[in-house]
């Protein structure tokens, strides 16, 4: 497609998604996700971009009656993560997620970051402490919290909480990290911090981010997909999408005439 040099990390093929109500939220969405790149999903509210994102770590499995059709292939092992035989928990151990609103657990800062390791049965104190430190550093939070790791996570500011959630997701070395409008609940300064962090993280892993902020998509992403009414309208590298969109609808949305 657009790029032949960079290896693929994942791709969706003819992905359909139905909510329990019967509503079809995704219609035959096909799209590549390139390794160590940031791919942004944009589109008006209700276009299915969050629904699409949440397919990648099978979040929809939590609510009975939801149905996937089609494939999400993960590389290099060519696993279709939507296949029945593939365990959702195994998928989530490879693909982690950061949510719209920071959702730390009612635990200490340390235990929040260590959560993924605990869930995996890691008991070695040394290993856990090292991993937590590494993750906090990776999320650019270490300097702010290193002396109060036992404090309750709720005491952090909103931006810090979101970075804590990133650290939590980072601690288990995921291959892909999903971001669902990660800065929509944050102020501009915290937003800038998170964006900078995401650009850094791209060297370690692959990022898929949903955003309703077009400037944000333009600033941080390598590839951009424009979705509308559950369909993939246009996909391309971010520069092309924002300067020379192929479709009129994309241009209208990007220039603010619509949406």
């Amino acid at each position: 497609m657009v790029n032949t040099q960079t290896p693929l990390k994942a791709e969706s093929k003819d992905l359909n998604f139905f909510y329990a109500s019967g509503h079809q939220a995704l219609k035959s969405v096909s799209m590549p996700i390139y390794e160590n790149k940031i791919t942004a999903l944009i589109g008006p509210s209700g276009c299915g971009k969050s629904t699409y994102l949440r397919c990648f770590n099978r979040m929809h499995d939590l609510y009975p009656g939801n149905k996937y059709e089609g494939q999400i292939i993960m590389h290099p092992d060519n696993t279709n993560i939507l296949e029945h035989g593939v365990d959702a928990i195994e998928v989530r151990m490879r693909i982690s997620m950061v949510f719209q609103k920071p959702n730390p657990f009612p635990k200490s800062i340390f235990e929040n970051v260590a959560y993924g390791l605990r869930v995996r049965g890691e008991t070695n104190k040394r290993t856990v402490a090292d991993k937590v430190e590494e993750a906090l550093k990776g999320a650019a939070l270490w300097n702010e919290v290193k002396d109060r790791q036992q404090d309750l996570a709720f005491n952090l500011s909103g931006g810090q909480q979101q970075r804590l959630c990133i650290a939590r997701a980072l601690a288990t070395d995921p291959e892909i990290m999903l971001f669902d409008e990660p800065t929509s609940a944050l102020d501009p300064i915290a937003t800038a911090n998170i964006e900078e962090l995401m650009s850094e993280l791209r060297h370690k892993l692959t990022i898929l981010v949903v955003t309703h902020n077009m400037q944000q998509a333009a600033r941080i992403s390598d590839y951009t997909a424009y979705m509308y009414l559950g369909e993939m309208m246009e996909y391309g590298d971010t520069d092309t999408i924002f300067t020379r969109p192929a479709r009129k609808e994309t241009e209208d949305y990007i220039t603010g005439k619509f949406g």
Binding site: D77, E175, L205
Partner: peptide
């Protein structure tokens, strides 16, 4: 950086059997 990437990716993929056994245990 590239080296690190492969290393981290190995965490689940290279221990797939162990991870799956653990998940089975937890699900029990």
């Amino acid at each position: 950086m590239a080296v690190q990437t492969t290393q981290t990716q190995a965490s689940v993929l290279n221990n797939l059997d162990a991870v799956r056994a653990m998940i089975r245990r937890h699900k029990r």
